[in-house]
Design a protein around this nucleic acid. Structure first.
Lengths: 162, 162
DNA sequence: TATTGTTATACTCTATAACTATA
DNA sequence: TATAGTTATAGAGTATAACAATA
């Protein structure tokens, strides 16, 4: 496009100024849309913080839950995390391969596998909780201390939607 | 297992009572975990409410955004929704196939396609907003009116986490 | 040269059926 | 018969490279 062809347009348009932002107000007024965007942003932030620990949000939640509930069987941990049993197999495989968790045979029921952290797993989890505390601080800086507490409470209730 | 073998166990265990729930308290205290669980619950609730309209959350957000911003080009709508341009193609294809949206050629720039709702799309979007209002009511019943407003504000801020 | 829409493709997540070993 | 772990597999959703048309 030549300069002469742009004379009818405003200077801003001629300079290829960014187009006006879209009107997001209808979506911004419902819970679901900002809820999804916030979840993606928080997980992306998590991934940045945890890249050195090589832990995804799902892996962190699994380590944390096993750490707080050692000896519980694999399917119970999967169920508590909302992960389908078949999908949890590869995840525990990976934690075991990295020497972070172990599957123990229990004499009471030889079908099941009791999960527990190894010493290395417990050590990594400690580092992970410190990284997580940093994210919570960043969130608190963004929304305020009181808001963060209210947010957690409201989200926990929302999770009960059926 | 025979009855005699269970005599050493408590009556509750003998009856195969559900195992004690896991301790979720560490995960319940951070934002990310309940945020993810809430997002999944809200989307599942959305899917139940929208099955008759055959709209996914992503499709609803696209219809809503096109409806509020008719004539904007496809890549701008995709960008505003956080959807990669290539992935938005099939989505618009489907909306167009169902006669809900259309891609218009614009004389100003023949590379781009301006999106707009058809009459059928606008009509479906109206029904969709009524269904969405029902979800907002359900959420308000769950967390309270004030909490819902605070929640939306806090989530919008969280979405700005870098 | 850069941008828009598009195609192709790969990777992750998730859901389901079915197998095995145990109970 | 039922349950725990597992395998296999299919379907979403998402990210990236590269192309044609147009600027």
């Amino acid at each position: 496009m030549t300069a002469s062809k742009r004379t009818a347009k405003s200077q801003a348009e001629a300079r290829d100024a960014p187009a006006a932002p879209l009107d997001m107000s209808p979506l911004a007024k419902i819970v679901g849309y900002p809820l999804r965007r916030a979840q993606l942003a928080v997980f992306e932030d998590f991934n940045r913080r945890f890249v050195a620990l090589r832990l995804t949000p799902a892996q962190f939640s699994a380590l944390a839950l096993i750490g707080a509930n050692p000896g519980r069987k694999q399917s119970d941990v999967a169920g508590a995390l909302g992960i389908q049993r078949p999908n949890f197999v590869a995840m525990v495989d990976e934690l075991e391969r990295r020497g972070l968790a172990e599957r123990l045979r229990t004499p009471a029921d030889r079908r099941s596998r009791a999960l527990a952290l190894t010493a290395a797993g417990a050590a990594l989890l400690e580092r992970a909780w410190r990284a997580q505390a940093e994210q919570e601080k960043a969130i608190e800086r963004l929304v305020g201390r009181e808001s963060r507490a209210l947010l957690i409470a409201a989200l926990a209730r929302l999770a009960d939607l059926q």
